[in-house]
Simulated assay, not measured.
Amino acid sequence: MSDPVLREKGRAVRRQLVGDICADKLDREVYTDPHMEKFGEITQEVLFAQLWTRPGLDLKTKSMVTLITDVSTGSFEAMSLHVRFCRIHGWTEDEVVEAMLHCIGYLGVPLVRKSILVARDVFREMHQNGELADGQ
């Protein structure tokens, strides 16, 4: 059973994490599908409204933790969103790449190589879309 209050809170947090351009695109291209709408309901109510709003870590730190879990599990599709989270919440491109490079010794070259390629594409897209203020 969906909780409309949690759903709205989660949608607001998701928008804060991915930015307006990406949130609008997700709403328009992904969450209009009835199956993905069910997925959105759960992730927005549980993940974004409850997990991401817990005290103890700021959004910047949570963004990097999430990105590193993607690197470690090879979750390259999700990584595209999570690189965006990191950039929007203050991590520089160099810091994102350095965090990935640090994983080479623990996870291996193939996962890190692919991760950096994903990050490169996200950086390019964000610059092309004007999603980052000058100097970010």
Rank of each mutant, 00 (worst) to 15 (best):
Arg15Gly: 01
Leu17Tyr: 00
Leu17Ser: 09
Asp20His: 09
Ile21Tyr: 15
Cys22Lys: 11
Ala23Met: 13
Asp24Pro: 13
Asp24Phe: 11
Lys25Trp: 15
Glu29Gly: 05
Tyr31Thr: 02
Tyr31Ile: 00
His35Phe: 05
His35Tyr: 10
Phe39Ala: 00
Gly40His: 02
Glu41His: 14
Thr43Ala: 06
Leu47Glu: 11
Leu47Ser: 09
Phe48Ile: 12
Trp52Ser: 05
Arg54Asp: 00
Pro55Asn: 10
Leu57Pro: 01
Thr61Asn: 06
Thr61Glu: 05
Thr61Gly: 02
Lys62Met: 06
Ser63Ile: 05
Val65Ile: 13
Val71Gly: 02
Val71Leu: 13
Ser72Asp: 07
Ser72Ala: 14
Gly74Leu: 05
Ser75Glu: 05
Ser75Arg: 12
Phe76Lys: 04
Phe76Met: 04
Glu77Thr: 13
Met79Tyr: 00
Val83Ile: 14
Arg84Tyr: 01
Phe85Gly: 00
Ile88Pro: 01
His89Cys: 11
Thr92Pro: 11
Val96Trp: 03
Val97Ile: 15
Glu98Ser: 10
Leu101Thr: 11
His102Tyr: 13
Gly105Ser: 14
Gly105Gln: 07
Gly105Val: 07
Gly108Ala: 03
Pro110Cys: 12
Pro110Phe: 06
Leu111Phe: 15
Val118Ser: 14
Asp121Leu: 07
Val122Tyr: 06
Arg124Pro: 14
Gln128Leu: 12
Gln128Phe: 08
Asn129Gln: 12
Gly130Arg: 08
Leu132Thr: 05
Gly135Ser: 07
Gln136Asn: 09
